[in-house]
Structure formats: structure tokens, C-alpha cells
Design a protein around this nucleic acid. Structure first.
Lengths: 281, 281
DNA sequence: ATGAATTACGGACCCCGTAACGATA
DNA sequence: TATCGTTACGGGGTCCGTAATTCAT
């Protein structure tokens, strides 16, 4: 039976051209390599080498065989990789969320209960989350509402309340609360990775323009060094620079119910394992 | 490092379902197989089996891996086969001939000079023989003429003279010789495997119909038991039944030069090895 | 004379089979 | 209790590296 290791040596010899160099690369002695090439040739049953007393090279057949062998080795590696990938996929918990804010917590909690599992998480549009949890692509999704679907079970995970973060000299800076319609038309800074909030904001403030920032640092700098309103939440408040929260800006809560959401972790009712049931023991 | 022998055992286990039966088929002991499957699993690095204390079966990943492995083994076989085929092709002398009659002699002579070579011979149309010798497909061809081509070298191999074999009561049975035009229009028996003669005969006797016989035995029987003329040659004369040559039929030589041919063995002038030069030392 | 491949030789280690064991139907 | 799979153990074979040899540049 053809030996994978020897095939590997053979291909390496094909690339290098001398036994000495090949032996060095493969970390074996040269006599071993000589013997192995003899074995291989015997296994093929046809001449693969041109030999003189002190040189050896592949003949035409040997070149053909080496190229075949190279592909075979690659396919062998592919087999291993495919199998490992499949196994990994089997033990991967697919997690979808409408917002990035809770993902670290979710991963932390899930990891505690499924220590051997891999977790693949992503922020995705709500319709795709619903579709994905129904068709089995996701094992759990985090939604800003509890879907009324008998196939799904649902458990409250947390809340988030949006406020406008306004410069102190803003005309609404002294208000105790605001509705989004009052701010409609006013241009705002917006951070890119805020999940479903993005669509909601654009929908509820159709006359405003939003300056979307992709870089966290730039976004923070602009908060400090501009007078444009931004959103903030009771969740992310902590991570803002002190100068903002105590200094040049004030947070004014938004009254609209759509901006004060409860998040729900959703699983298929008959899923196994049912992640929800494991997270709340 | 993955071991193809163990992969083979793995695939066999995939087919049989129990280690015991697999061990039997593979002619190894069961403990060996147990160990090898453990090795394989370690090599893949992911679980491939469902195990209870006294049973073992492939899990989903294992099935996937086994199917991959099956293909991989097939590809290793293909590699070996391709290499062997290529080698064989390298050491095969390709021989073409316009007539089957000299092929055994040619093979015999060539084998004597190239004892390790394989010889692939076939009867083919003359234009294809010419094309084949020019483009290198054939190493040598037998033609009924010497082509005037400086790239080809040419050596006379033998001669063949056609006669009509006529029933004694045939109107031409007493003639010393005949031209084919005199026989044109008369229907004749014809044996199928006569190479280039077939086209020549049809061309020169356009008004005759030829009853082509594919079976040697049937052909011989019809010679004895019918009055239809047939062709015979000084080459094949010996092989006709005695009753024909001395009994009910007589051979009348054909005068046309086209029916009295010399055969030439043709090689490329710069071929190596040049078969012609080796056949006449 | 240096460097290449091959052959010779001795020892380590791997791998196999027999035997013993555990568990399940 | 018979069958299947796993673990234990001992011996033989294989395979490797060092050393020696041969040949060519």
C-alpha cells in the first residue's frame, strides 16, 4: 500500500531535485530517502527515476506520477479539513442578534453552559433573524420583541432605552424628555454598528440626515468636538468619555415606545439542545 | 500522518458495520482494527464514531469522512494506474499495417529485437497509416508502396500476388492469367479482414458485387460449396483447404500491377529507436 | 577531493497477534 | 452465555540513522 509520508517525500524531491536537499527538508537521513524512493518505485511497479551512480532524477513517468501525487496529497488534506470543518459546524452554536451590544454577554453566558461549543455570532436584519431561527440556521437569536409564534420560545434578556445626547446649548438641552418627531429634521451623528436601530432611526426621522461613522474613535472625537446631536443608551452610556457625560453634553430620554425596547432571546421550541432552557437553570 | 492502509480499513468498516467482520475481510485481528480506528480518529482530531461498551458505529462526521476516504483511495488507485499506463505507453511500439497477413511475422521479428517492448498493432486505411507515421503516432507502418518522402525511410518486407480462385468449370478457368477488368461485373466472395485490398477491389471492379464474409469458417465453406470466384494470394494459398487447390478450383494470376504489390516497412528517418535499422542488423 | 547516491549494519520502536477483560443482548 | 469491542502483553519485523562504499565532477 502506498505510504502517504513517502509520497510526500517524493513530491518534495520533485520540487527540490536532489535527495540530499530533500532529506534535509524532510528531516530524515539521506539513506532513508534512498530506500523510500526505491520502495515507492517498487509500489508503482514502473521506473520513475533516471539513475547514474551519483545522481538521480525523475524520468517522464516520474514527473507525471509526482504531479499526480501532489494532487493526491492535497486531496488528502482536503479530506481532513472537510471532516474537521463538518465537525466544527456540528458543534457550533449559531447566534444572531439585532444589536451588537449584548453579544459579548450572550457569548459569555453560552460558553459557560456549553464549554466545548464554538459560537458563531453576527448582527443581522430582523427579518433574516426570524427566517434563520425558523429554518434552523440560527440556534438562538436576540430580537427587540417577542415573536408570536408557537414554534418559538422566548425569554426576556434585557432592556435598552435611547436618549438624545445633546450639547448643553442645544434648544432641547433642558427638556426632561423628547419625542423623536420633535428632533425630526435635525442632522445627527450615527455610529455604524448599531444593528436594527439604524433602520428604525431612519424611519422615524425621515427628514433628518445622518452622518454615519464607521470608526469608533472618529465617532467619539466628533461627539466631543462638534455640536451635532447623537443617540446614546442606558446600555452604552458607560463607555462614553467622562467629558461628555458630565461635561459638554446632556442626555435627554426619548419617550417613543419604539426607542425603549426589551430584548428577547428566542429559540425554536423543539430545538435540541434548547439553549434558552440551559441558560436559565 | 494519515495511513492509506488504515483508510482502507476505515472504508471497509463503513461498508460492513462491525469491526469483527471488517477484521475478517482485511485479514487482520480485531484488536489491530480497534487500534487503527483509534489512530485514525486521532489523526482526524474529531469524533468519527459512536461508541458503547460493546458496539461501535460511524457518526455523521464519520460517514462523511468515510465517503471522502473512499474517493481518495480510488484516486490513489487511479494515480498508480495512470502511471503504469503511461509507462506502458512509453514502452509500446505502435505498428500499423495495410494488411493483416504480415502482422504476426512483424510482431515476431520486432519482439526478437525489443524483447521488453509491448507491441500494439492494427490494420488501418493507408491514408491514416501515412498520417500516423508522419505525426509520430506509429513507430512503423507496413505499406504496399514506398512513400516518396524524405522524412521517411523505407525497406521492402515482402510481396503478395493476387489470383482469382475459380471453379474448374468457370469460363476463365483455363487461362494462364487474367486482368481484373475481364472479371468486372462478376459477383465474388470476399473475406472481411483483408486490409487495403478491400478498397482496391471495389475500385477496380465497380460493376461487381461482393459478398463480404466476416467469419473465416463460413468463408472457407462457401469456397468449397459454391461456384463463386474468390481472390487468393501466394501468401494465403497455403492456408486454403487442399480440396480447393488440388480439387475443385484453380488459381489464375491477375496481371494488373496494382494486384501484385510489394510491401514496405516504413519508419520516420529520424526516429529513435529506428525500428527498421534494428530489424536488419 | 568533495559531494552525490547507494549499500551494510545494528538498534530502537512500532505494530501485530494472542490472551484477558468488560459489557450487552 | 455468546458476541462484540477494548486493553494488556510479548515478540518479531520494519524502519531509521550511522558508517562505509562507490562514483562523478
Amino acid at each position: 500500500m502506498v505510504d502517504y509520508e513517502i509520497l510526500h517525500q517524493f513530491v518534495t524531491f520533485y520540487r527540490t531535485g536532489t535527495l540530499r536537499e530533500t532529506a534535509e527538508k524532510m528531516h530524515i537521513s539521506q539513506p532513508t530517502l534512498t530506500r523510500n524512493m526505491q520502495k515507492l518505485e517498487a509500489e508503482f511497479g514502473v521506473p520513475l527515476f533516471n539513475r547514474t551512480k551519483n545522481s538521480i532524477s525523475l524520468n517522464e513517468t516520474g514527473i507525471l506520477a509526482a504531479e499526480d501525487a501532489r494532487m493526491l496529497l492535497k486531496q488528502t488534506e482536503n479530506m481532513l479539513q472537510r471532516t474537521r470543518d463538518f465537525d466544527r459546524k456540528k458543534r457550533t452554536i449559531m447566534l444572531g442578534a439585532c444589536t451588537p451590544v449584548y453579544i459579548p454577554e450572550l457569548i459569555h453566558r453560552i460558553t459557560a453552559v456549553y464549554p466545548t461549543a464554538a459560537i458563531s455570532s453576527e448582527v443581522q436584519k430582523i427579518p433574516l433573524l426570524l427566517e434563520g431561527i425558523r429554518n434552523g440556521y440560527y440556534h438562538a437569536v436576540l430580537l427587540p420583541f417577542c415573536p408570536e409564534d408557537n414554534d418559538l420560545s422566548c425569554r426576556k434578556w434585557g432592556e435598552e432605552h435611547l436618549s438624545f445626547l445633546l450639547p448643553k446649548r442645544h434648544r432641547f438641552a433642558r427638556r426632561k424628555s423628547l419625542s423623536v418627531s420633535e428632533m425630526n429634521g435635525e442632522n445627527m451623528l450615527l455610529f455604524q454598528d448599531i444593528g436594527f436601530w439604524h433602520d428604525l432611526v431612519v424611519e422615524k426621522m425621515p427628514d433628518s440626515r445622518f452622518l454615519v461613522q464607521t470608526e469608533r474613535y472618529t465617532f467619539m472625537e466628533l461627539i466631543e468636538n462638534s455640536t451635532m446631536p447623537v443617540f446614546t443608551t442606558d446600555y452604552s452610556f458607560d463607555s462614553l468619555p467622562d467629558s461628555v457625560s458630565i461635561g459638554s453634553r446632556v442626555a435627554v430620554p426619548i419617550t417613543d415606545p419604539a426607542f425603549n425596547v426589551s430584548y428577547y432571546l428566542v429559540c425554536k421550541r423543539n430545538a435540541s439542545p434548547k439553549i434558552i432552557d440551559r441558560l436559565w437553570p
